[in-house]
Amino acid sequence: MTPAAVSLVVMLSNALFCLGVYGLLARRHAIALLLAIELILNAAALNFVLFSRLLGHAHGQAFALFIIALAACEAVVGLAIVISLARSAKTVFADDVNLLRG
């Protein structure tokens, strides 16, 4: 792989990550937050796979595999929470849930 390609992919994963952070901070809908989180996770997985290729090590790919698996779990639980939230609080917007208000 050429260095240009490598830096391109790295930049891409940076940008994905930052977009995910933006989404996490800026979006109101709970599920939108989950989508943003998926972006972040993907950015990380991409990074792992890139360096796995660069260094010829299997751990990177394995880790990316784990990320996908955990993303699945997290999505499941998160969505369960959202659905129960929708049922009980009758809202899906994160800023409506302010029970932790100090």
């Binding site: 996490l24 901070l25 800026a26 800023d95 932790l100 100090g102």
Partner: peptide
């Protein structure tokens, strides 16, 4: 006190 709005995104 307003800092602790209880909104997650604020903490994030």
């Amino acid at each position: 006190r307003w800092i602790l709005s209880g909104i997650i995104q604020q903490s994030l």
